[in-house]
Design a protein around this nucleic acid. Structure first.
Lengths: 215, 215, 215, 215
DNA sequence: TATGAATGAGCCTTCATTCAT
DNA sequence: GATGAATGAAGGCTCATTCAT
């Protein structure tokens, strides 16, 4: 292997990910329209022209940011599901906690925020995101709920609506951290929020919440 | 009084509200940066120049949209609080349900969405919004929680964190309706969501949820 | 009539023509691609943005330059034809000489030059130009030839091919004047060229050239 | 001799001509400014970087296209002149017909078209072209005319102006073929055009046209 | 007060040119 | 010699803002 070629090759292969990472952080910070490609390129350490070697347009870059970032994570979540089928309580905690670990507390938390802000401007992308991310996430959480109800561990709640309720606090916190952390660093600390979150929802879901599972 | 002058007067007085309403709907639809003042003026039925008679700049219009829309509503909420001090369960339902009625299901639901998207671009406005809206809303919900805990009706939850948890689903649903209703009209129907929401949180909060208060 | 409104109105009505005139001169001078819209605007005495109030894009401006400039002239030519039907020699001179007066020696001479340079880049425009200008011009010249042949004044030449031959020197001269006048001002002087042109073609066409018609 | 080296050598020597040929065809098709060097390189089967091994800049490539293509042809024309001094009619036909064979109906026909379009953008090149091509071509045609006039075969026309007239149809047809052949394949067929051309000009030039020389 | 024509700074995008490999 | 990734200056176009009417 020629080391010199290899370095350039490695660089070239890494570029798209470096660029989408830079773009993600700026899109989240400023919004799609207010983000200048100059800045994206600068943050990725390349010139403006280089960006166009890898992405056809600002819109293409945006789509790559959304699709390439989040789809792989969904697959991990689905693997989790199969591993914990027989304990719905641990499964639900694993899914919701896993969402937080893999998305909510990482840069990818910006993706839901972005999609909410821009879904009307990019309808096909919104459709894609809905099908590939939202639906699949709902199926995971809803599946865990249904298992728990079938096994008599969870109360017989309205599953689709409750899924939406369960995701709400997590998604909102993840957005909060990229939006209001300057105003209120305290409310954004997950170490206080997450226990209260799991305490409330488990108490709300479990048939017999007193056995300590809600902690 | 000349009636034509009077009509003009009325018109003139109504203009700012007509303009902020048009601006709100467009900001929510497209985002701040992607909204053109041409469109705002057109939707309000005036010319672009007229807009500048009432607002100094696009930024000033944005600030008016945020501040003038939502602050009055906060006062209604605070009045509610004083009226229902002695029944924390009804009080909490009234506050959360009132939030939905007065903000969540109206055009004002766009305001939280906007502030999340633009807080980094308008830090002082974010600070204002945090102080005048978020903090006061939290005080209301947190006050109801504390009353219930003191009176032994609610479990002894971590109040600040639980407030955040409680608001999450409501805020998210309100955003969802302006973002993904095209993809998923069903999940945006509050008549299914709200009962499941109250069922879950009341079960999660109440010391004795079986007495029917959770419905 | 309000004179102030009127002046602005008059200005607004004149703008498109001022802009196409400026654009024509620059397109002819530099070519379509090398012409910057800044320059066009500056030459018309307005700002770059103003140009976009009247034309949607550079391409739209180019199309307007071509279509609005030359079509009206064709109609004059066709009127000429009907007035001189009974004297084919004078008719042919009037058409060819009229082409020179109305197009060849004016700024419109740039239009054929432009179309030749850009026809491959704007195929629909080329088609339009071919149908609305070239075909009609050929019909005029060809009609005069045919009349003369029928009346026994002109030799029985191949009409379509000869039309092309007759137009060649005129069109070339008009292009020459915008291309090589700096190199050779002399060859661009029509007062020398035109007599030689008419002398040659009339001698070439007439059955009895000696009667002086060739002058 | 190593045959592979030799092939490379041959390749290397052929490169400039391959590149100018590719460039000529693209310049003629799209114009100088609208031609991208990527395309030129691709059409010549090399990479963009390679192009810069042979030409310093786009402008240098353009100049090479103009100068290297056409100057050698002029010399053939001048050789022709000396060979046919004593028959001015055949000489003139040979020069004009030769122009058509060597330039007008080949890719080199694009050169006059290009120079007309770009002369204002490249004044020194225009000057060079004027001196090395136009003047020499004029001298050839003018010389034949003068010989014919001296020998009493041609009428006493204004030589410089008539040269311009004689070249017009040929040059125009050659341009037409690269510009409007898509619109009007018929008018571009030289087998119809050239006879009509020679018929007209010979009739126009000859003192006694009836002796058949005009065919 | 209301209008809308005009402005020009700013951003996305292209492409001639360079240079490390 | 050949490549093609990288650069950055330049131009088309947008839109917030101004101002004459």
């Amino acid at each position: 292997m020629d080391p010199s070629t290899s370095r350039r090759q490695r660089r070239k292969q890494a570029r798209p990910a470096e660029l989408t990472a830079a773009a993600l952080s700026l899109f989240v910070e400023k919004g799609y329209a207010a983000t200048r490609l100059d800045e994206v390129a600068a943050r990725a350490g390349v010139s403006k022209g280089t960006l166009y070697l890898y992405f056809d347009s600002k819109e293409a870059l945006f789509k790559a940011v959304i699709t390439e970032g989040i789809v792989p994570v969904m697959e991990k979540g689905e693997a989790l599901f199969d591993a914990l089928r027989d304990d719905p309580v641990r499964l639900l905690r694993a899914i919701l906690g896993g969402w937080w670990e893999l998305i909510g507390c990482t840069d990818l938390a910006g993706v839901p925020k972005l999609m909410m802000a821009e879904s009307r401007n990019f309808p096909e992308l919104a459709r894609f995101y809905y099908d590939e991310v939202i639906s699949r996430a709902r199926a995971l959480v809803g599946g865990a709920l249904r298992l728990g109800i079938e096994q008599g561990v969870f109360r017989a709640v309205d599953v689709p609506a409750t899924v939406q309720v369960l995701m709400g606090p997590l998604i909102l916190l993840s957005i909060w951290r990229t939006s209001f952390s300057a105003c209120d660093a305290d409310a954004c600390r997950p170490e206080k929020f997450l226990p209260a979150y799991f305490d409330l929802i488990m108490h709300g879901l479990l048939v017999r919440p007193d056995n300590g599972d809600s902690r």
